[in-house]
Amino acid sequence: MILEVAVLQVKPGLTDGFERSFKEASGIISKMKGYIHHELQKCIEDPNKYILLVKWETLEDHTIGFRGSAEYQEWKALLHHFYDPFPTVEHFEIVNLDS
């Protein structure tokens, strides 16, 4: 399992529109191959900052499958104009501490 993490800085005054668009975009990502779960959290200290956490089965499900799809173009059209600066997306994996 891979965890995609993106810090989203939304332009001031656009958070309501962003949240409405994100609700619609959630229906897109949740149907993708390899998708497991996602959540969006809003920062308490900065009301224009969000964190997006998406669990994928594999890195390629996100980087190739989703980003290379027509659905990603819909996602992009719904959300990318809200960000300034454009978010950095990173991927994480679980560290096995049992050894």
Rank of each mutant, 00 (worst) to 15 (best):
I2K: 14
L3D: 03
L3G: 05
V5T: 11
A6M: 01
A6K: 00
V7C: 12
V7F: 08
L8D: 01
Q9R: 10
Q9P: 03
P12N: 00
P12L: 02
P12T: 00
P12E: 04
G13R: 09
G13D: 03
G13Y: 05
L14A: 11
T15R: 08
T15W: 01
T15C: 01
D16R: 10
D16E: 12
G17V: 01
E19C: 02
E19F: 01
R20E: 10
R20G: 05
R20W: 04
S21F: 05
S21M: 12
S21N: 14
S26M: 11
S26A: 11
G27V: 05
G27D: 12
I29G: 02
I29N: 02
K31H: 15
K33F: 05
Y35L: 06
I36G: 03
I36Q: 08
H37A: 12
H37N: 14
H38T: 06
E39Q: 09
E39G: 07
Q41D: 10
Q41S: 15
K42N: 01
K42W: 02
C43E: 13
C43I: 04
C43S: 15
I44V: 15
I44W: 14
N48G: 07
N48S: 11
N48Y: 02
K49T: 14
K49H: 11
K49M: 13
K49F: 05
K49D: 08
Y50H: 00
I51M: 10
I51V: 15
I51F: 01
I51E: 00
L52A: 02
L53N: 09
V54A: 01
V54P: 00
K55D: 06
T58K: 08
L59P: 02
E60G: 06
D61P: 02
H62R: 02
H62D: 12
T63L: 12
T63S: 15
T63W: 08
G65K: 12
F66A: 05
G68V: 07
S69Q: 03
A70W: 10
E71T: 06
E71G: 06
Y72G: 03
Y72H: 11
E74A: 14
E74K: 15
W75Y: 13
K76A: 09
K76I: 08
K76S: 13
K76L: 14
A77E: 14
L78D: 00
L78R: 09
L78Y: 03
L79F: 07
L79G: 10
H80W: 14
H81G: 13
F82K: 02
F82W: 01
Y83V: 00
P85T: 07
F86Q: 15
F86M: 15
T88K: 15
V89W: 05
H91S: 05
H91E: 04
E93V: 15
I94H: 12
V95M: 10
V95N: 08
V95D: 04
N96K: 11
N96T: 05
S99L: 13
